[in-house]
């Protein structure tokens, strides 16, 4: 089966890969580009561990084909920090102990970043519903929600 050539942008870098049309964007990020920050927890769009943004829109990279990335702008957890300066969410997640095992963390961070860009002052309920597609089995979500709300408050003060 012939592979398809895809040119796209990931975290600001122009990249190319060849992929089977059945491969998902997640497969391509992980196996073709060695960007293993996005995780496959389910492969059915139910856990959110593979969350990335495509042209600024939050999606599950397991629910998008690699070939669909042609000409798009993809952002993953690997692109969240600015050089050695962590994104405020990344700092707050460590500070609040908002991760235990850490497998859901990349997806949660990418999703939370998308939330705060859209809504800098979310309520607890809005935060919980926005993140409902990001399963966490360790924390009971309590510290995750607190970390996101606290980041939002801090970013509002800073701006």
């Amino acid at each position: 089966m012939s592979k398809i050539h895809v040119s796209t942008t990931v975290n600001g870098d122009a990249v190319d890969y060849l992929c089977d049309p059945r491969e998902t964007l997640l497969d391509c990020l992980r196996d073709r580009l060695n960007l293993t920050g996005a995780k496959e927890g389910c492969g059915t769009g139910d856990c959110g561990a593979c969350s990335v943004t495509v042209d600024g829109r939050l999606v599950c990279s397991c629910l998008m084909l690699g070939v669909e990335a042609e000409g798009k702008k993809i952002e993953t957890v690997e692109g969240m920090a600015d050089g050695d300066v962590l994104h405020p969410l990344q700092k707050k997640f460590i500070e609040h102990a908002a991760l235990q095992c850490g497998i859901c963390t990349p997806g949660v961070l990418v999703a939370a970043k998308a939330l705060l860009e859209k809504n800098p002052d979310p309520t607890e309920e809005e935060t919980r519903y926005w993140l409902a597609g990001n399963l966490c089995r360790c924390t009971g979500y309590d510290k995750i929600i607190r970390a996101v709300m606290d980041t939002a408050a801090e970013m509002r003060e800073a701006s």
């Binding site: 293993t36 957890v77 460590i94 500070e95 963390t105």
Partner: peptide, 23 residues
């Protein structure tokens, strides 16, 4: 006390290597 976890940075940047991340 409640210091930052030593593996925190790896786990918020996607750098931490889990089971499926090896090659």
């Amino acid at each position: 006390t409640r210091p930052d976890r030593p593996d925190g940075l790896d786990k918020v940047t996607g750098r931490a290597k889990f089971g499926a991340d090896a090659h």
